[in-house]
Amino acid sequence: MTARWSGSWAEPTDPARGVDVDVLVPTVGRPAELATTLAGLAAQVEVDLRLVLSDQSAGGDAASEPAVAAMLRVLEAQGRPVTLLTHPERRGLAEHRQFLLDHATAPAVLFLDDDVWLEPGSVARMLDALRSTGCGFIGSPVQGLSYLADRRPAETAVFERWDGPVVPEVVRRGTPAFDRWSLHNAANPTHLAAALDVEPGGWVPYRVAWVGACVLYDREALETVGGFGFWPALPPEHAGEDVVAQWRVMERFGGAGILPSGAVHLEAPTTVRDRRVDAPDVFFDQGEVIPR
C-alpha cells in the first residue's frame, strides 16, 4: 500500500496497516530544518513508513512548532503512524541513535538526520536497492547543491560501482577503501550521478567508506552487530558513531551507496561542534577490531 492521497485524508486510519520502513529522526533545536525534512518524508508516497521522532530540544517542544506540527498532521492524514518521543538526556549521538533503534519494529530502518530533504521516490529506491542487493545497508549520500558549480575530479576519481553482488568488506583508516570518503563532499554525488546516465527511478550501487545522514539498514543486520549499543564506551561529545555501526555491518553483510541520490543537505550549521573524539578511533585499531 502507498500513502493515502488527499481525497482520503478524512477517513479513519487502518490500525492493522503494515509498515515497511521505520524512519528514525533525532532532532535538537532546528525547527525550520526539521519541518523541511518532514515535508520531504511526506512526499515519499510509494512506501509505507512510520516516523519515529526523538526530540532533545530544550523543553522537548519541537513538535509544537507550527511548520513541524503541520507536517506531522500531513503524515498522519496520509495514514503514516507517527511516534513522538522526548529524550532530554544528552549522552551523545550514539546513545540517541540506539534510543531510536530500540523503538523500531519495521524490517528496515532509515536513520535520517533532521537537516535532509528527500526527493520524491528516494525511500522507494533505497528500499528496492536494499531488497535487491540483500546487503546490510543502503545509503543515499547528502548533496550540498550550493557547490553545484564546484567540480572536484580528484575527489571523485575513487568512485567504483558494484558490478556484481554487494559482498562483505573491511574498511579501515589507512586502507584504500577509506579514501572513498571524498566521494560525498560538496556536490560530488550530483556530478557522479550525471555521468552515469541512469533512467528515472533507477539506481546504481557503489562502494563506500561510509554514508552519513541518510542510511537505510536491514534492522536485523544492524541489531546482529549490536546497533549503537557501544555508546557507553564514548564520552557524550563525539562524532563518527555511524561509521562504527556501518563498518560492523559491512564486515558481516556488506553495504553500499546508491546514485542518483535524492538526499539534499540543507547546509545548516552543525549541532555537533566538539569532534575531538572520533568513534572509529576508539573501537578500531590499525585495521583490527578491538574486542567489544
Results as ranks from 00 to 15, higher is better:
T2I: 01
A3S: 13
S6G: 06
P15H: 06
A16S: 09
D20N: 01
V23R: 13
V23T: 10
V25C: 14
T27G: 10
P31S: 04
E33T: 14
L34E: 12
T36C: 04
T37F: 01
A39K: 15
L41F: 11
A42N: 12
A43D: 12
Q44H: 05
E46H: 14
E46K: 12
E46P: 12
V47W: 05
R50I: 08
R50Q: 14
L51V: 06
V52Y: 05
L53P: 04
Q56S: 15
A58M: 01
A58D: 09
D61P: 00
A62W: 05
A63N: 06
A63S: 14
P66Q: 00
A70M: 13
A70G: 15
A70F: 14
E76F: 09
Q78S: 07
G79F: 03
G79V: 06
P81W: 06
T86Q: 05
P88T: 07
L100N: 13
L101I: 06
A106L: 08
P107W: 10
V109D: 01
L112A: 04
D115F: 11
L118M: 14
E119I: 10
D128I: 00
A129E: 02
R131H: 15
S132C: 06
T133S: 09
G134P: 02
P141A: 02
P141T: 02
G144H: 01
A154I: 02
E155Y: 01
T156L: 00
A157S: 00
F159W: 05
W162L: 06
D163K: 10
P165W: 07
E169T: 09
R172K: 03
R173D: 09
F178D: 12
D179G: 13
S182M: 09
A187H: 07
P189A: 09
T190V: 12
L192C: 10
A193S: 07
A194L: 12
E199T: 10
R207D: 04
V211M: 14
G212S: 09
Y217A: 06
F230T: 15
W231I: 04
P235V: 15
A239F: 12
E241P: 07
E241W: 11
A256R: 01
L259F: 07
E267S: 08
P269N: 00
R273A: 15
D274R: 13
A279L: 12
V282F: 10
V289C: 15
